[in-house]
């Protein structure tokens, strides 16, 4: 035992279970194969990015990934390609995503704390129900939710996209945090209890400060999924001033009537860019988050 919290670390990058036994030939083969697969997988993405910097006539003239003529023209056309600029829609997306992150972090950590650390009647029952909602498709509740928000006058506002997150509707994050909280030694809580701390103080001063890794993971996932979400904004947002970047992009497909691929690819690149940056920054957290919950997305 140590007195530091055990941070779940299912992915240790460089330990090797059955390495070194392969012949150099075989190793080279595996490398070549992996590299080839990587290239094929990344090719469409690379092509998208490079094409966004090519002049329109070059896009379909060559499969080369290096623009012969580098131009930001497509970005200029795309940025103002709709009646509302993409900048505006990016801000909408940002606002929604940030609010969702805040909501998820607060509400899910509270629920996870209750499930892992507090004693109360019916805890097991509620926990089982929570796990059940993990599996349940949202379609079952979609229409009544829509009708409810319609009645609230929330349709065509960001409320339906944001408010539910303050009520821990994303069970995935509860599950993620439950897994992590379970790794924090219970004796820390007990020491705090002996120190006279109540549940709230233990939560704020002991559990949360020790949970920065899982909070960061939840925040990043939350942000990315919200940023990427298409279905909910599609249903709830009607006016183009309220659109998220995803909705805007999809509208742009229609608006260009597929004639301005350059602008389309430029805007596509831009909407993916924030996710890509987060991926670069938090790759390890994301991968560990998936490995420890065993949940995909």
């Amino acid at each position: 035992m140590t007195d530091t919290a055990h941070l779940p670390s299912a992915v240790e990058a460089d330990s090797t279970p059955d390495g070194d036994k392969h012949s150099p030939m075989k190793r080279a083969l595996i490398y070549a194969l992996l590299t080839a697969v990587s290239f094929i997988m990344l090719y469409p993405l690379l092509w998208m990015v490079s094409s966004s910097f090519k002049p329109e006539n070059e896009i379909f003239a060559t499969t080369s990934l290096i623009p012969q003529e580098f131009t930001l023209d497509a970005y200029r056309r795309g940025w103002n390609g709709l009646s509302v600029s993409f900048g505006h829609m990016f801000l909408n997306s940002l606002l929604i995503s940030v609010l969702v992150v805040v909501g998820n972090l607060i509400s899910c950590s509270m629920a996870a704390y209750a499930f892992t650390r507090l004693q109360f009647k019916g805890r097991g029952f509620w926990f089982a129900l929570m796990l059940g909602t993990l599996m349940m498709p949202q379609h079952a509740v979609l229409i009544p939710q829509y009708l409810m928000f319609l009645k609230f006058g929330w349709v065509n506002t960001i409320m339906p996209l944001v408010v539910p997150k303050f009520f821990a509707i994303d069970a995935f994050f509860i599950f993620l945090m439950v897994q992590f909280f379970r790794g924090i030694p219970r004796e820390l809580d007990e020491a705090a209890i002996m120190d006279g701390a109540g549940p709230l103080r233990i939560f704020l001063k002991v559990i949360l400060p020790l949970s920065t890794p899982v909070m960061a993971t939840a925040a990043v996932f939350s942000f990315i999924w919200t940023w990427d979400d298409f279905f909910a904004p599609l249903i709830y947002l009607n006016d183009i001033e309220k659109y998220t970047a995803q909705l805007g992009l999809r509208t742009f497909v229609d608006a260009t009537a597929q004639s301005d691929w350059g602008a389309l690819l430029a805007m596509s690149t831009l909407t993916v860019l924030p996710i890509f940056i987060l991926f670069l920054l938090f790759q390890r957290l994301l991968i560990e988050g998936i490995a420890t919950t065993g949940m995909k997305r």
Partner: peptide
């Protein structure tokens, strides 16, 4: 907390994120 008791744990249960000073002042 109302029993006037202090306890020393086998694993010490020090708060890993707090300094020694904070550990002692927390209560």
């Amino acid at each position: 907390s109302e029993r006037g008791i202090a306890m020393v744990f086998q694993s010490y249960a020090l708060y890993p994120h707090m300094s020694v000073y904070k550990n002692m002042s927390f209560g």
